[in-house]
Each structure stands twice: as structure tokens, then as C-alpha cells.
Design a protein around this nucleic acid. Structure first.
Lengths: 255, 255
DNA sequence: CGCGCGGCTTGATGTTTATCAAGCGACGCA
DNA sequence: TGCGTCGCTTGATAAACATCAAGCCGCGCG
């Protein structure tokens, strides 16, 4: 691991309250690897030997069945993924693919499990991370089952707005076809959904959005803290007390 | 807790490999409570003070938004629920309601968290349980996003068949309206889906099914171990080695 | 420059699913 | 025994969503 990555990894909820010794032991044999864009890191069903920590780039976690594919989540730095499979020493239920060129830290799954047994604080940290991932998925399912495509898009925009500083000028972090897969619709329907949102004051120019009538958009989207996590991204260092509850929910990719 | 409940609770993945002392400390202040049918145990957003252990009856975990409601999972004994909220000491993202009269053991959330810090084996057990719950939700999302209503029903039937001893005579464990909500469709469409499955050899008489042409049904359903968990329910006692991986995935209700 | 490619949009059409309405049959209860 | 309720089914209709096809536009490249 490069030395300037250490504080970024330590800021993860999974390592935040962990002793220097345990951290050193867990990451001792870790190695940093670079992957080009559009590289399949992991196929569904693969045996999982490493915990992945995304340090740079974007990774998509997907599920497939019967020649169809869906995007479960898109990860941005700094995030861990497939922790659940590592904890259970099981195979992956999701595939993982790079969307951009990525820097990924790979931590031995065995050393994760071993250190959970030796340091209860680390076990707690892992459990908290997993609990946060679980809750992320609960939100995802509610979003998917209870809302229509247009409503999901409207809420996606509002969440993005909240996470990027509440400005009314927003830049989409993904290609639209990727966003469509994430929202559970076809690119064609995403296009039509954006057209529908024009009536609610959303102007779209390429990947740039402008929210002109926030009230109208909110009235359509009806954002709900029990579905949409509008918490801002975690800064590298913060007081423990606040961090605990929501920081663990920032990342939704337990694996 | 009644003495005959102890081995049933101990058989949960969460307590299976935990010492007598820790088990006693965790469950020391637990109390058993009976609830009538159709009782709301927990509203979405409620603060969660207890880990719930369902010993008898059925509990539905639901999500609501904008006057719509969906069923996330239906629990049968012996299952824990809202563990994730307990671990994070956070509020509930799902509501919980009894479907039948229930016996529920309520374990102090504080004692869960405290014992995780004191006994690393317990911390691991909690993490494993959460990891299994997480993977259950991953399966749910893939099922929901990748399959049509008829396909979900066909796979539900095949999974039920596998879990209840591979007999071709199956009894539905829930009312059809409850099943419809679980499968993410309306009761009307469930009815039509059953009608569709008649062509694939599924005969329905009330809550009793008969599978006449298993091959045809499987060809339609295309069950997949990465979505459908056909593992049989856990017996009370079993060898550790096999138990570990799948037992934790039996229950899908981390909270 | 001209060309092809890929991402995006738009329109036409078909499938899936929800909604509304009506009716059937089992059950509890007076 | 009669009657209302409730779960379930069926049909008609509408909304949501996917699919197929065509075309636009920006961009890299020969």
C-alpha cells in the first residue's frame, strides 16, 4: 500500500476505531493492484480470497440471470466490497467490473477472519460495516419495489444534490447507460424519464443538470430518510460519536 | 426464556459457537413475550432497543412509502430480526408485524453490543449472521430485478419444494395475498401467474399444490444457486464445518 | 476532411403489470 | 338458516416498461 493511501483506508468505518497493531496485521500482506477500464474483477460464483478496497476509479457490482444483467450498485472511492463473502469464506453472489481505470487494494480474506478472532474491536468494526451494507440494500429494495422509474430518477438526483454540496448545478458521475442500469431501467426509458422531469424544472445538458424548481421536484420525489440516505460523504477524520452511525451506512457493498 | 427454548435459540448461527458464559450474559435479561396476530411490533423509523428472536408464529417485515406497502420478507421460527439496527444502535428501516400469534424473545440491544466487545467469538458470530442476511438481500434484489412475476413464482415453488423435503405435494405456508406481497405483485396477478403455471404442470387446490411436470417447471424457472437458496432448513444440531457457510444464510432479516 | 463508431434520443409497437369492477365460495355469526 | 365478510378469481382497461428501429451528434481516426 502506498503511504498516502494509509489515512484513506484508515478512514473507512471498518478500520476507523481499530488499533495500529491490528490494522498493521490485517493490511500487512495486502497488495495494491491497478486494473484497466471494463475489466471483470470477479464473476458471480467465484471463490473470494480477498477483500477489495477501491482507492481510485469506479467499480460496478452486477447480477446476471438468464442472459440478463442488472447493476446492483456503483462504488466510488473509498469503498470496500464483497466483505460478506469474505466473512463467510463463501463464493461471490455478485460480479464486479471496473467502469474506469482503478486502483484497488486487495486484503487477504484469511487475515480478515483471523484478526476478527483476535481483536474484538475489529470484529465489531466488521459487523458494523456489514450492518451498514445491509441497511443500504434494504433501502435499495424499498426504492425498487415502491417507486416508479421517474420517481427513482427524481430521488437519485436529489440524493446526488445532497451528497455533492446542495448546489443546484449537478454533474452526473456516470454515463447515462450506466445510470439507467443502476436505476433499474433501460437507457431509452431513462431518456424519457429525464424528459418527464423537465416539467419539474430539471434541465439536462449532456451530463450536467440544473434544478430550477427544487420544490416541484421534491413534491414529485417525496424523498424519505428511511429510503434515501442524504448524508454527506465522510471526511477523512471526524469525531467518533457522530461518525459511527451513519458512516457505516455510506458504503453499500458488503458482498 | 422457557427452558425448552434454550436449545432452539442456541442453534441459531448467531449463538451456535458461543460460550455458555457469553450466551448466559447476552440472554440474561431477555424476556419472552406473546403477541396476537396482526400486531405491529415495530414501525419504520422506530428506535430499536431489542433484538427480536421469533420462536413461534410468523412475522412480516415491510417497507412503506407514499401510502404503498411492500413485504420484504416473511420470517418463520427460529429467526432473529433487526440485528443490523441493533448493531448500529440505529432506527429501524423496516416495519415488523405479526401475521399469526407469535412468541418472541426480546434480547437487550445494549447487551448484544457489550458482549461483542467482550467476546470476539460472539462478535464473529454476529458478523457472520449479518453477512448471511446481507447475502439474502442480494438474492432478493437479483430475483426482483431480473425475473418476471411468473418466474418469481415458479422459483418460489421450487425453493419451497426443496426446503420441505422435495415432495411434489406442497402446502403454501402463507395466505396468497401475503405471498403476492412477498413476490412483489398484486393478488390479482398472483392468481393469473398460478393460472399460467398450470400449463407447466402446477395444479392448485386452495393452498395445496401439486407439481406434475417438474422438468417443465424447472425449464421455465431456471433456478440458480446464486439467486435461489435451496438449502434445507437447519436441524438443531449439526457438524460445525457444513453448518457455518449456509446456516448463516438461512435467515435474511438483519434489520 | 470524410468516415465510422458509440452514446443518446425519439417514435412506434408489444409485453408486463397494476387498477377497477364484478362475482364466486367458504366461513363466522346471528 | 340466512347474511355479511373476506379471500380469491376473472375480465376489462389503463399505466408502466421493454423492445425494435431509426436518426442525431460528438469524437477519434485514417
Amino acid at each position: 500500500m502506498r503511504s498516502h493511501d494509509v489515512p484513506r483506508v484508515r478512514a473507512l468505518p471498518m478500520f476507523m476505531n481499530v488499533s495500529e497493531e491490528t490494522f498493521a496485521r490485517v493490511t500487512g500482506a495486502a497488495h495494491l493492484q491497478k486494473f484497466p477500464a471494463n475489466t471483470q474483477l470477479l464473476l458471480e460464483g467465484d471463490n473470494v480470497d480477498f477483500l477489495y478496497v477501491l482507492l481510485d476509479g469506479q467499480v460496478e457490482l452486477q447480477g446476471t440471470w438468464n442472459d440478463k444483467e442488472t447493476t446492483l450498485t456503483i462504488l466510488r472511492p473509498v469503498s470496500t466490497f464483497i466483505l460478506a463473502a469474505v466473512v463467510l469464506d463463501a463464493n461471490a453472489l455478485m460480479g464486479a467490473r471496473t467502469i474506469e481505470r482503478c486502483d484497488i487494494l486487495m486484503i487477504s480474506g484469511h487475515s480478515i477472519r483471523q484478526n476478527m478472532a483476535e481483536d474484538p474491536l475489529f470484529g465489531i468494526a466488521v459487523a458494523r460495516e456489514l450492518a451498514g451494507c445491509y441497511r443500504g440494500l434494504v433501502r435499495t429494495i424499498k426504492n425498487q419495489k415502491l417507486r416508479s422509474g421517474v420517481e427513482r430518477l427524481a430521488n437519485y438526483i436529489l440524493t446526488l444534490r445532497a451528497k455533492t454540496g446542495a448546489s443546484d448545478l449537478i454533474h452526473l458521475p456516470h454515463e447515462k447507460r450506466v445510470l439507467a442500469a443502476l436505476l433499474g431501467m433501460t437507457p431509452e426509458n431513462l431518456s424519457r424519464a429525464f424528459a418527464t422531469l423537465q416539467a419539474y424544472g430539471v434541465d439536462v445538458i449532456g451530463a450536467d443538470l440544473r434544478i430550477c424548481k427544487l420544490r416541484d421536484l421534491e413534491r414529485l420525489a417525496k424523498p424519505d430518510p428511511l429510503i434515501d440516505n442524504h448524508a454527506p460523504p465522510a471526511p477523512d477524520i471526524r469525531a467518533e460519536a457522530d461518525a459511527e452511525i451513519w458512516a457505516a451506512e455510506r458504503i453499500r457493498a458488503g458482498g
